[in-house]
Amino acid sequence: MQDQGEIDRRVRAYYGGLFDEGARLTTRSAQGPLEHRRTQELIAEHVNTGRVLDVGGGTGVHARSLRARGLDVVLIDPVPEHVAAAAASGIDAVRGDARSLPFEDDAFDAVLILGPLYHLASESERLQALREARRVTRSGGFVFAAGLSRFIALGANVLGRPVRSDGAITALWEQGLPPEGDRFPAGHFHTAEELADEVADAGLEVIAVHGVEGPAGLALEGMPIDRDDLTEAALVLARAISAEPGIRDFSAHLLAVARVR
C-alpha cells in the first residue's frame, strides 16, 4: 500500500499547479459538464434547501451551482490554491482535511465528499473521512460520497498497452491499488459494491450507488465542450441505467447517496 503522507503531498502538488481542477468540470472536455450536470441532478433529488458542506470541493464548481439554487454552502479543501479560487468567487471556503473536519456535530443538512475518498489509500482512512461527514450532518440529512471506478481504471491501464507481468494489474483489479508511475495521485479505485459497503460501515444508510456519467462518459473525454448533442445523449443513457449493478461501474465516477439515521 502507498504511503498516505506521500499521497497527500502529491495531491497538493498536483492540484496546486500541475492540473486545473476548475477547468476539468467546465471547459476541458465534454466529459466535465456531463459529470457536473449529472452529479447536480443526483444531489437535487434529495437536497433543495439548507446548509451544505462541500468537502474537497476544489475551486468551487459544485458549490457555486448549489449556491445558485439557494443553498448555503461552505467549502473545505486541503489545497491552498483551490481555497483561494473558491473564496474569490464568493464561496465561504476554508483550508482543511476530510479526515478531521473543523465543524460541530450536526452542523449541516448535507455533505458532499466528491473527491477525498479516491485519494485515501487505506480503508481505515476512508472510513474516518466518511464518519466525519456523518458526524457533521444532522439526523435525516444526506451524504454524497464519490469514488473512482476500478473497472475504468483497469481499462485505462490495459487497453492498447502491453500486458504487464509485475502483478500491478492484478492488484488493481483485486484490491483497487493504483499502479505506480501515474501522475494522478490516486489512493484507491472502488467497485460500486465496495463503495456501498464502506459507506454503510461508516454508519450511514445507503440509498443507492450511481454511475455518474454512464457508459458514454468516457467517449466524451476527448470531445470539445460544444458537442451539446453528445452530452444530451450521454445524459439520457446515464439517467436510464444510473444504478444498474455492473453497468454503473462503466462510469468513471461512482456516487453513493446515503442518509444519516
Rank of each mutant, 00 (worst) to 15 (best):
R9P: 07
R12K: 10
Y15S: 03
Y15F: 09
Y15A: 07
G17K: 00
E21V: 11
A23F: 08
R24Q: 15
T26L: 13
R28V: 13
R28W: 11
G32H: 10
L34Q: 01
L34G: 03
E35D: 10
R37V: 07
R37S: 11
Q40P: 00
Q40W: 02
I43D: 04
A44G: 11
E45I: 07
E45K: 10
V47K: 04
N48I: 06
G50V: 04
G56E: 15
T59M: 09
G60I: 09
A63P: 01
L66H: 03
L66Y: 03
L66E: 06
R67N: 06
G70H: 00
D72N: 09
I76H: 05
D77E: 08
V83I: 05
A84S: 13
A84N: 10
A86E: 06
A86N: 11
D92C: 04
R95W: 01
G96D: 09
D97Y: 13
R99D: 07
L101W: 06
L101C: 01
F103G: 03
F103R: 00
A107W: 05
G115W: 01
G115M: 11
L117T: 04
Y118W: 05
H119L: 09
L120Q: 06
L120S: 05
A121C: 08
S122T: 12
S124M: 00
E125Y: 12
R126Y: 01
R126F: 04
A129R: 02
L130G: 03
R135E: 04
R135T: 09
R135S: 06
R138V: 14
S139T: 12
G140D: 09
A145D: 07
A146P: 13
G147I: 02
L148I: 08
L148E: 04
S149K: 00
R150P: 00
A156P: 04
N157K: 13
G160S: 13
R161K: 15
R164L: 15
S165A: 15
D166Y: 03
I169E: 13
W173T: 09
E174A: 10
E174V: 08
E174S: 11
Q175K: 12
G181Y: 02
D182T: 14
R183S: 13
F184Y: 13
A192K: 09
A192C: 04
E193Y: 05
E193H: 07
E194C: 04
L195M: 04
E198T: 07
E198Q: 09
V199W: 01
A208N: 08
V209R: 12
V209C: 07
V209P: 03
V209F: 15
H210G: 02
H210N: 06
G211I: 01
V212C: 14
P215A: 11
A216P: 06
G217A: 02
G217M: 07
L218R: 09
A219V: 10
L220H: 05
E221V: 14
M223H: 10
I225H: 12
I225R: 15
I225V: 15
D228W: 10
D228M: 12
L230V: 02
T231Y: 02
T231C: 00
E232S: 15
A238C: 02
A238E: 02
R239A: 14
I241W: 01
S242A: 15
P245L: 03
R248N: 04
R248D: 02
H253E: 06
L255E: 08
V260S: 10
R261E: 11
